[in-house]
């Protein structure tokens, strides 16, 4: 068993594009669920829009990479509007049902062979990296220390991913500490009370849905930046993973989503490496593939425990939770 390799892989997951992509999606969900109280169960759909918007506009329409990013953002705005107009007037649980369905519809549209020319159907999309890599100012080579040693292209993905993350954090931080954020939190508590005070509740919810959706779509772009767009990623369990990261870090916090995503992926990577190694040396009486299932069971149990014993999340305010209805 190669302990050093396992630890190195685990440490490396802190800076992986997947973690950064998750962190962005989780920040978007924090805007929806944590601050506005919108039970959006379609966060995977927003990520898919980002990823496919980016890849399709480059591959099929010859956009430069940043044009692809813009398309992903505009796509998320449109998806939020289409989703929000009929549903934001409904009670919270209806939003959950409609969003989960909308995300599935979207995924099946990307998966169907009808649009294979654009979406690649079940194969997904890849090979859209030229423009992005051409924009890389870093000279060729491998840089970094220990587990954080990457090629210039790998660094470029991480640098831009972190930049997007920083921007998203700054935006959410500025929004939620403002009077705008106060209205949003009020809506989360009781929208009729906020209506009675003269606020256009629907408009605020829509703004939150759009902003969170665009941030989540950026998560989808970062997720897709280094390699490929794979339709198997944007399934409903992705939504649940993002919720897990959110609740872990703290739903109504600015930095909780980042912390939650990092912990989620560090745990995932650690178990993903450790369990098969334990199978190999005969400590775990099961097959390697069974150990991968065990990984999800263990992550689920660990997270369940954290949510039971620390329901406000790691960064959440304990006091807030004392009064949860």
């Amino acid at each position: 068993m190669d302990i050093v390799q396992i630890l190195s892989n685990t440490a490396g997951s802190v800076l992986s594009p997947v973690t950064i992509g998750y962190a962005l999606a989780t920040i978007g969900l924090a805007m929806h669920f944590g601050y506005a109280g919108l039970l959006n169960m379609g966060i995977a759909g927003f990520m898919a829009i980002g990823a496919y918007g980016y890849a399709i506009s480059i591959l099929s329409f010859g956009f430069p990479w940043w044009g692809g990013v813009l398309v992903g953002m505009v796509g998320a705005v449109l998806f939020a509007l289409v989703l929000g107009v009929p549903t934001l007037r409904l009670r919270g649980d209806y939003l959950a049902i409609v969003t989960i369905a909308a995300a599935e519809v979207l995924r099946l549209l990307f998966l169907t062979t009808a649009f294979e020319e654009y979406t690649g159907s079940a194969d997904g999309l890849s090979g859209y990296h030229d423009s992005f890599r051409a924009s890389n100012p870093l000279p060729d080579g491998r840089y970094g220390v220990g587990p954080f040693t990457y090629t210039e292209d790998q660094w470029w993905v991480r640098i831009l991913g972190l930049a997007a993350l920083a921007l998203a954090l700054l935006l959410v931080w500025a929004l939620v500490r403002s009077p705008w954020g106060r209205v949003l939190k009020g809506i989360r508590e009781d929208e009729d009370a906020v209506r009675a005070l003269g606020k256009n509740v629907f408009a605020y919810k829509m703004q939150a849905l759009v902003i969170g959706g665009v941030i989540a779509a950026m998560g989808g772009v970062v997720y897709a930046l280094p390699a490929s767009v794979n339709p198997g990623v944007y399934v409903t369990s992705l939504t649940f993973f993002v919720y897990t990261a959110l609740l872990l870090g703290g739903a109504a916090t600015v930095f909780g989503p980042v912390l939650g995503s990092v912990i989620f992926w560090v745990l995932q990577t650690l178990l993903g490496n450790l369990l098969p190694a334990l199978v190999e040396i005969g400590v775990l009486p099961m097959s390697t593939s069974q150990s991968q299932t065990l990984r999800f069971i263990l992550v689920g149990v660990a997270l369940g425990l954290i949510v039971i014993f620390r329901p406000q999340g790691i960064l959440g305010n304990k006091k807030e939770l004392t009064f949860v209805k």
Partner: peptide, 11 residues
Amino acid sequence: TFQLTKALGLL
């Protein structure tokens, strides 16, 4: 105002 009070608890 409302008969059943609507204080926004977590504000």
